[in-house]
Every structure is written in structure tokens, then in C-alpha cells.
Amino acid sequence: MPGSIGEEVGWRGYMLTRLIDARVSRPILVSGMIWGVWHLPLMVAGLYYASPILLLSIVLFMISVTSFGYVIAYLRLATGSIWPAVFLHSTWNAIIQNVFDLFTQGDSVLLWTGESGVFVALTLLATAFIFSKKQWTMIRTLPKQGEPLV
């Protein structure tokens, strides 16, 4: 959870809201892509999950992370808080990096599952598409005690 707190404070708590304030076109897409690129040096160095085909892993990882950024951004902006984003991010890391790894075996397992896997990328891409078509209500900060939420 500590890593997720740090990332969410930075990515969705600070950067996303600053991109929105700066009127950057498609701020959620841009923030998701920056989030993905931030992880790439770890993949290239072999310190992060990747299949034997590094270039394919990078492309699939970027699709996964950028797509997942839509879901996390929705939680952040719909609630006005980073905590739902932190909990989702932490849960994601625990499941994808621990549970998936324990229950999937084989030579090309990382090509299909994990954060740089084909199935995960396609699922997250479909999810991001659905979230991107929703009408979003943006709450920048939580209301003070006694104020209505909307």
C-alpha cells in the first residue's frame, strides 16, 4: 500500500488535477500515459514483470496502465478523494502481482496474464472504453463537514 499511496498522491492527486487546470486536451489519457512511461525503465532493466518479448510487453503494459488510469481517475474525480484510488491501486497490485503469479504457470504465462499480458490489456482497454463514454461528475475536493456532496 505505501507505493500505491505515493503514486496516487502524485498521479491522480496532483498531476491529473493540474493537467485539468491547465486545460490539457484529454488529461486522463495523458496522465495514464505518463504513469505508464514512468514504469518503463524498470521493465527495460528487467526489474518489472515482462514477457520474453520485451517490446510486446512494453506495448501491452502501456495499454494496460493507460486504460487502468481511466478507472482510477474516475474514482478520484467522482469522489473528490484519492483514497478510493489508493485502495483500488493497492488491491490491483496485490492481485495481479501476487495471486495471478501464484496461480498461473507456464513458459509464456507473462505474455497472457500480468500487467503486460494480452488478456489483461484487452480487458482493461474494454473497461477504459466503457468508462470514457460515461458522463463524469468531477468533485475536486471533499466537502467540509455539513456541506452537501454535490
Rank of each mutant, 00 (worst) to 15 (best):
Y74P: 07
V86M: 14
A85H: 09
L55S: 14
T66G: 09
L110G: 12
I82Y: 14
L122N: 07
S132K: 01
I58D: 02
L55V: 13
A94K: 08
I53P: 03
P84N: 11
I96R: 11
F61C: 08
T91Y: 04
L110Y: 13
F100S: 11
I95L: 15
M62P: 06
I58F: 00
W112Q: 02
S90P: 05
Q135K: 15
A73R: 02
T123R: 08
W112D: 04
R76W: 04
T66C: 14
L56E: 00
S108G: 06
S81W: 06
E115Y: 06
H89F: 05
V65Q: 13
K134Y: 01
V71G: 10
I130G: 01
S132R: 10
G106P: 03
F119S: 11
D101H: 09
T104V: 06
G69Q: 02
I53D: 01
Q97N: 15
P52T: 00
F119D: 12
I58K: 05
V59M: 09
L110K: 14
V109G: 11
L111W: 08
I82P: 11
A85E: 06
T91N: 13
I63T: 07
G114P: 01
S64D: 00
I63H: 07
F103I: 15
D101I: 08
L60W: 05
Q135Y: 01
K133Y: 03
N98K: 12
A78E: 00
G69C: 12
S81M: 08
Y74H: 10
F129M: 13
S116G: 15
D101F: 14
Y70I: 01
Y74K: 08
G106V: 03
F87T: 13
S116K: 01
W83M: 12
Q97G: 13
N98W: 08
I53E: 14
T66K: 10
T79V: 05
D107L: 11
W83Q: 08
S67G: 15
F103G: 09
Y70V: 00
P84W: 08
T91A: 15
N98M: 11
L125K: 05
L124W: 13
G114A: 02
G80W: 03
V99C: 00
V65S: 12
Y74C: 03
P84L: 08
L60A: 11
